[in-house]
Amino acid sequence: MTDLISELEGSFVKSTAKFDDGDNFMIDGTSPRKRRSPITTITTRLYERFGKRVLDLFLLLIALPVVLPVVLIIGLLVRSDGHTALFHQDRVGKGGTLFRVWKFRTMVPDAETELSKYLAENPQAAEEWHKYQKLRDDPRITPLGRFLRASSLDELPQLWNVAVGDMSLVGPRPMLPSQVSLYPGSHYSLMRPGITGTWQVSDRNDSSFAVRGRFDTEYWADLSLKADLIVLWKTIFAVLSCSGR
């Protein structure tokens, strides 16, 4: 038993996040996880390795009868402009592997080309994009897309990603491959990305991309069934507040 406990405690990443006044991310040499009793350590690791996946699948099965009709209705509304209802894009998953994430399309066709053109013509927008990796007034977003983004309903198709094991209900926000070099943290690749997470239920629209590393590190440090249930509960109010974009 002593050997098992030592192995579990030793498997944690030995680093912690700090930020200076400019939101620059720094690493020191101590563990970000609080010192826990042996029993708590084992419980946390069991939840991380097995319980979290069980919770994902259990909640998916419960939500399916309600979510499926909503997905179908939204899909038809998005499809009504003559273009595809779904949008897919490569994202970075656990262990640095790439997977295809699914969302409802909220932008005009050929949105990436439109973004490059818009940023080239608008230096202020380019600066905003570099800092936040999003735009407050993104000209590519359709009227229906603005509602879907504000309510976070555009992310409902990611439940498929959860079902197949690419994502979890709760975890770090899925990151683009092009954002890896900008990401300041070291714990993202240890977890499955989540549909919701600590960043999504906080000041997500006002924090810089660099600060996301702090949210991921804090989530990794506190990862537990209780922490996930709290985030899921807060997500309900975040969705109802329509604060996304």
Rank of each mutant, 00 (worst) to 15 (best):
M1L: 08
T2R: 06
L4E: 05
E9L: 01
S11E: 03
T16F: 11
T16R: 12
D21K: 14
N24A: 15
N24T: 14
T30H: 06
R36W: 08
T44F: 05
E48D: 12
K52D: 02
D56I: 04
L57M: 13
L57T: 01
F58N: 00
L60S: 03
L60R: 05
L60Q: 07
I62F: 09
L64W: 11
L68N: 13
P69N: 02
S80V: 07
H83K: 09
T84R: 14
A85G: 07
L86A: 14
D90Q: 12
R91Q: 08
G95P: 09
V101L: 09
W102T: 03
W102D: 02
K103L: 01
V108D: 07
E114T: 15
L115M: 14
E121P: 08
E121Q: 12
E127R: 11
H130C: 10
R136A: 06
D137G: 06
D138H: 01
P139K: 14
P143L: 09
L144M: 10
R146G: 10
R146P: 01
F147E: 00
L148F: 02
L148S: 01
L148Y: 00
L148K: 03
L159Y: 11
W160I: 12
N161A: 03
N161Q: 13
N161M: 05
A163T: 02
G165F: 08
P177C: 02
L182N: 05
L182C: 09
S186N: 10
S186Q: 10
H187M: 05
Y188A: 09
L190Q: 08
R192I: 10
R192F: 07
P193N: 08
G194M: 13
W199R: 01
A210E: 05
A210N: 04
A210I: 01
R212H: 08
R214S: 15
F215G: 00
T217R: 05
L225T: 02
L229N: 09
K234L: 08
L240W: 08
S241R: 03
S243E: 11
S243W: 02
G244M: 07
R245M: 13
R245I: 05
